[in-house]
Design a protein around this nucleic acid. Structure first.
Lengths: 343, 343
DNA sequence: CTGAAAGCGCTTACAG
DNA sequence: CTGAAAGCGCTTACAG
């Protein structure tokens, strides 16, 4: 510590925290302190600081899998936005496992994060309720939990799915399968499923439950193959609606392996758009989400909440956009396609 | 604190840290402590612990951009491996900016990380030298720094680039351009460039410096368009070798826009393989890197170094693999292609 | 077998 | 205008 100056650490601390003038410390002394601090490249130990202040200037981020481009991109914007306000971020991947997530939250709390951003795998209110009771600031992204008021920034899943399904319907597809991921209690999955069902009904097409399939998060490859084979070969499905990007990628793989042509043999739409879909053959029609915005808004909400824990929580729903490419034959509309897909 | 038991916090601390028996605390007391700890869901404050112990069980990760799938995947495996040993990871994106990176290292040090994993943007030995002097454990990934012994895990860039170029040569391409990113002082870029040059020379093709182009990290889109146009239209380039995945993606975009066919009008190879390339049309031939292995090995090296700072540093070079797909016409070898590409 | 005390490096209420 | 002291929540050397 800089008692090389013959002053107390109190004084140094005061000056370094910008409370110099406020506390009436002579400008001369302030200058001296600042100067030496710079020269010594002195930075206060954040650990000690945090311990004293009870705030670590760190936020925790838990997502299903940081290597999924969807979350990676959100993580990037969170890091960026948080950084502007002097916050660092610690990330963890829950792998859609609630128990793992519980541990991670504990870990993060032990590390005294000031707040949490969660794409939570929790289905029950209980866990979230606990967070509220513990009064740790947090905001839910991507997935909200029904029946409990929290900060959240999600996307209009219902509309996205409705639009995607309607798009398929407009192109005269009738046998449209839905491929979702388990755990399927997650809000977005349910909302998307509802959008699909309602669009079907509104289009006069009955919802067939055997065209709705679930694939588990940790065994996508094997199950996808099985399900698609069954769906396409035995249930004459004409179009596929995948509920997230990894599902679509994996589906694409299987379709290739089966030597099926898109959209002639099978059409498809993806919820969640990634670079790959622009370059795939053919380019994939997808519902695109405003990832940067999700991250940015989440940080804003969180920092507000940290500063002002008593304020009422706010729910943000961001719009999605359908990017029509060629995986449904939208730009083709050749009679043979139409003929084939009509029922 | 659990003085509900009528014992001292010394005792509690001892028991919780597994030093109970070693210190001869009665099993009965130990049980009682453990029990209450569980019941109260008591977890020691890591902040205080770290302050006392001088170790935070946290590692810092700095990469150019966490949203690049290349780094995201490495981050995932780092998180995973580190987690197994009770370490959490804090990440930051340097955007290839050395000054930014310097700040981040400082930030991370202030936060008392136990060690650093860096895909560094530094070109000078100086910065790395400083890390060594400060005796903060670290390991370099993806990029090593010439002339200084540090822990590092990188990939055989020279061989990857050599193979890719030779592959192109074997298919009778002669006018092969190299697209790299600036800053181009980064070791991998240089090594890859050398691999390209040597393969050319060994194949009896002179190295033409005007076929080697640089694109800056923060302005890829605009520059790519300009460079490719010039290269293809004015320098009759037949094949493109992109030095990383974002370059390739951006290149693909421009090629599409120019309505050029791959590989008939222009062939290409990418260093670094991503999902997209399997599904692109046509699928892209690429040099694939063992991402998980990079992350895992980096963590191992780092934890070793933390435990044993005096040990000599170790350099790991992992092999790469060329995945031949169809962007060079490898599977076609139609006479017209061969004829067209011969010089 | 168990506990009182010191100290990790800060910040801030209090006193002068 | 400046400083001594307490305290954030731990761990550990020391004493009994």
């Amino acid at each position: 510590m800089a008692d090389q100056l013959g002053v107390s650490k109190t004084l140094v601390s005061l000056v370094l925290n910008g409370k110099g003038t406020e506390r009436g410390i002579s400008l001369k002394t302030q200058k001296r302190v600042m100067h030496l601090a710079k020269k010594l490249n002195y930075n206060p130990n954040q650990m000690a600081r945090s311990l004293r202040l009870g705030s670590s200037k760190t936020i925790g981020l838990i997502v299903a899998d940081i290597s999924n481009i969807f979350f990676a991109q959100i993580a990037r914007s969170i890091e960026d936005e948080a950084g502007k306000f002097g916050y660092s971020v610690m990330f963890m991947s829950s792998e859609e496992d609630a128990e793992r997530e519980r541990n991670m939250i504990q870990l993060l709390q032990d590390r005294c994060v000031d707040g949490l951003i969660l794409a939570t795998a929790f289905n029950e209110r209980k866990d979230i309720q606990k967070l509220k009771e513990d009064e740790i600031p947090f905001v839910l992204i991507d997935r909200s939990i029904a029946g409990i008021k929290t900060n959240s920034v999600v996307v209009d899943n219902y509309k996205g799915a409705y639009d995607a399904t309607k798009h398929l319907l407009n192109l005269n597809f009738r046998r449209i399968a839905l491929i979702k991921i388990t755990p399927d209690y997650l809000a977005p999955i349910q909302q998307r499923t509802n959008g699909y069902k309602d669009a079907l009904r509104d289009g006069g097409v009955p919802v067939r439950n055997n065209l709705i399939r679930e694939i588990s998060f940790d065994n996508v490859k094997a199950e996808m193959q099985e399900q698609l084979k069954n769906l396409i070969l035995e249930h004459s499905v004409q179009a596929l609606f995948f509920l997230n990007n990894s599902l679509t990628v994996s589906g694409l793989e299987v379709i290739n392996k089966l030597h099926l042509r898109i959209p002639q043999d099978i059409a498809l739409v993806s919820f969640d758009d990634i670079d790959l879909f622009r370059f795939a053959y053919p380019p994939i029609t997808a519902i695109s989400q405003p990832l940067d915005d999700i991250g940015r808004k989440a940080v804003k909400l969180l920092l507000d909440d940290i500063k002002n824990p008593k304020k009422t929580k706010t729910q943000i729903t961001l719009p999605v956009e359908m990017i029509v490419r060629r995986s449904c034959g939208a730009f083709l509309k050749r009679p043979d396609v139409l003929g084939k897909t009509g029922e």
